[in-house]
Structures are given as structure tokens and as C-alpha cells.
Amino acid sequence: MTSDSHLEKILEQGDFAVTSECGPPRGVDPESIRKKGELLKESVDAVNVTDNQTSVVRMSSLSSGVILKQAGIEPVLQMVTRDRNRIAIQSDILGAAALGFNNILCLSGDHQKFGDHATAKNVYDLDSIHLIQTVKQMRDEGKFLGGDELKGVPRLFIGAAANPFADPFDFRVLRLAKKVAAGVQFIQTQCIFNMERFSTWMQQVRDRGLHEKVHILGGVTPMKSVGMANYMKKMVPGMDVPDELIARIKGVDKEKRAEEGIKIAVETIQQLKEIEGVHGVHIMAIEWEEMVPVITEQAGLLPRPEVN
């Protein structure tokens, strides 16, 4: 075991893991995080706290994660390289470990152009692969990037993202291989709506033997409405929403469309459980956290297993 992470224990004991995520508030109220956390608590093994996702300013993932921890929930600290250089990144990693974080998700982050501060300067001193290397070096070698020794190492379970739906498709598995070589231990994928493409990607993952080196958690997002499906298809970078899926939601009565979205999410999870090398799911119910207990229940993922 490389950390005290509950998520790592679940995965290492061979259980199918469930993670979810919560977006911090655009203000100082800790209650909204606690509320989201409480909704997820019994249904998942760990909860990601997003780091100024879509480049919109929110409460920091570090502080939001502390609030989750206080409520007895295991946070996964998302960290993007967009806003911090290597000095700030290493400093935050130390702080996170001191505050009891056990998991980190290494990301490059959405470009600031998408957010509410499009005139900002970005940093990108490191990329997401470098961030994985950084955490690993600090943890396993006890050294800063500059070479000095740490006084006490951060025992963090290292995660990253993968998007099998971005281009160029054939390169996607090579990029995963680089993340694995850098030291990533678990992967949460982009939302899976195109199961055919995901299955092809997983085949490539297995062909390279990567499924034995990293735990892959498939990304699942329930669609609330046709509007949301269209929005994700057209507006969200790197999202692959097939027309058939939109047609299926459109095909039911308006008041039953959310229910259909949940049904699709449950079916997706059931399909993912059958794919060799998929070790869990990451449910991103965007501002719809109350549905995570429903989805996990229907997908037969409850109760969550105990760890030794």
C-alpha cells in the first residue's frame, strides 16, 4: 500500500470502486459542500473535489476537501497545473498530506478561455504527466523537484484523467502509457456515452498490458434532459455524445427524460462492470448529486464494501 487511501484499499482488495465528485461553491459557505458530501457519503468510496473546473473561480479544492474530510468523507484532491508553478504545487501537496488527504488527481486543467477570467495568464510550468512524476518523486524518493530532501513524505494515492474520446484516437492509449510510466495508479476517464469507442480503447489498453498496471475507473454522467445532452455534445471540449443517445432521451415523454437519463447511466455501469480491466466507476452527476445513491443502488453497487 502506498498510502492510507480508502480508495486504494478498495481497489487493491479487488472490489469494484465507486467515486463521485463535487464542485466547490462560488462563495464562502461550507454548508453546500457538506450537503453534497452527505448525499454521496454512503454510496461511494471517495469524492473528487474539483479545482476551479472550466476555469471558473470557486472555493479551492484543498479547503473544500478539508470540509469533506470533517464530514467523514474521503476526498480526492484535484489539482491542475494551469494556475500553479512547481513551487506552489509542491507546497500544496505538502499541505494536503498534512491535512490528511490520501488521494490526488493530476490534471492540466481547462484553458482559462472557458472561464470567467478569460484575461488571466496561465502557468503550465508542468503538464499533467509532470505532476504525476512530481507527486511520485516526493512520495517515493522523498525529494523535491529541486533535489532537496523532504522532511516527511506525502503518502498520496496518485490518479489522473484519460479521455478516450479526444483525438487523435490512436494516440490516446500511448498517452495513458506515458501516465503509467510516470507513476499514475488510478485513472478516471471522461464521461462515457460512446461505449463502442470506449471498448475499442480498452482493447488497446489491454493489448499494452496497461490494465494490469493501473486501475481504470470509467466516467459516467447521467443526462438530465435533451438540453443537457446537446450542450455536452456541442459545448464541452472532448465530449463524445452520439446522436442515438440524444434520440433515446428525446423519445420518451418530457417528464420521464431525467428517469431515462438515470436508466442509461445504470446500463452504462453494468456494461462497464463486464469490461476486463475496468476496476470501477467515477460518477459525475453534475449538480445532481442526489441521484448518485439511486444510480449506485440500481447498478447493484451498494452497500459499499468494507476495507481491512
Binding site: S108, D110, K113, A166
Partner: peptide, 13 residues
Amino acid sequence: SKSLLNGPCGGSA
């Protein structure tokens, strides 16, 4: 756009 040395990121389409 992100000066990534090990790209492409997930936003390449």
C-alpha cells in the same frame, strides 16, 4: 495552447 510538453490534452478534437 497550454504549452504541454506531453500532449495532446483531452480537448483535442
